[in-house]
């Protein structure tokens, strides 16, 4: 089953529309990812089996390929090997139900840029895609600019009107999550997952999120940055720009 989303047409001509290939045999999941990622910056294409994916990879270049490992007709790793053998530089994020360390190591050694185990939150995926594309595109000077806000992804520094804002690691990670999911509602649980990583399963209270978000907001506003981070429905957040 192949679903192709074409929900944008007007901004295709503006600077770089990023092409993303979603290689995933589960049509529901592929459609969700496509719907979430597709906007004026990203255009998504779909491949639901090995042969289709191989054909697309042969014909086109993608900025980012989301690759499931278990596909009808062949393994995702094989596809990855093929891609790297052709010297193609497409960024690849493996999205797989396998989450053992050896699976991750195998994936990264074969040439994947990132590995995200299912189930994942879409904002988390969006953040990974965002940072991968930036990494691929702007090798040495990788700075996200948003009005007077500048985030240097390599030095991991944040400045507002050339004044440095000192953030903790968690606040920095949060900021990146928000920036790469702009105009999207992000739930408390998605943030918790992102903030606590492997520790997530140990803590049941999401209270600690409040403190981090509050501090980030305060620091940005003190530095003179506009109030772009909105609180929605009490516990959700949205980076409005």
């Amino acid at each position: 089953m192949r679903v192709v989303f074409r929900m944008f047409s007007k901004s295709l001509c503006s600077f770089g529309v990023m092409k993303i290939l979603i290689v995933e045999d589960e049509p529901d999941l592929a459609a969700s990812i496509g719907a979430y990622l597709s906007d004026e910056h990203y255009r998504c294409e779909f491949a639901a089996d090995y042969a289709t994916a191989l054909e697309k990879i042969d014909l086109y270049a993608y900025d980012c390929i989301l690759l499931d490992l278990m596909l009808p007709g062949g393994s995702g790793l094989k596809l990855l090997e093929e891609l790297r053998a052709q010297q193609k530089q497409d960024g690849v994020i493996i999205i797989s139900a396998k989450d053992a360390i050896e699976d991750k190591v195998a994936g990264l050694q074969t040439g994947a840029d990132d590995y995200l185990a299912k189930p994942f939150h879409l904002p988390e995926l969006a953040a990974r895609v965002h940072s991968l594309i930036r990494r691929k595109q702007f090798g040495t000077t990788n700075v996200i600019e948003q009005n007077e806000l500048k985030i240097d992804l390599l030095a991991k520094t944040v400045t507002v009107e050339d004044r440095e804002v000192v953030l903790t690691k968690k606040e920095y990670d949060l900021l990146l999550l928000f920036v790469s999911n702009r105009n999207k509602v992000i739930s408390k649980s998605a943030i918790a997952e992102q903030l606590s990583g492997d520790m997530a399963d140990m803590f049941d209270s999401y209270d600690f999120i409040y403190a981090h978000v509050k501090n980030l907001k305060r620091k940005l506003q003190e530095a003179g940055y506009g109030n772009y981070l909105k609180t929605l429905y009490g516990t959700g957040y949205k980076w409005v720009i």
Partner: peptide
């Protein structure tokens, strides 16, 4: 894992 991922993604979209 896969159905869980689907439900999770649908909820993120619903939001």
């Amino acid at each position: 894992q896969t159905p869980l991922a689907i439900v999770q993604s649908k909820l993120d979209l619903l939001l």
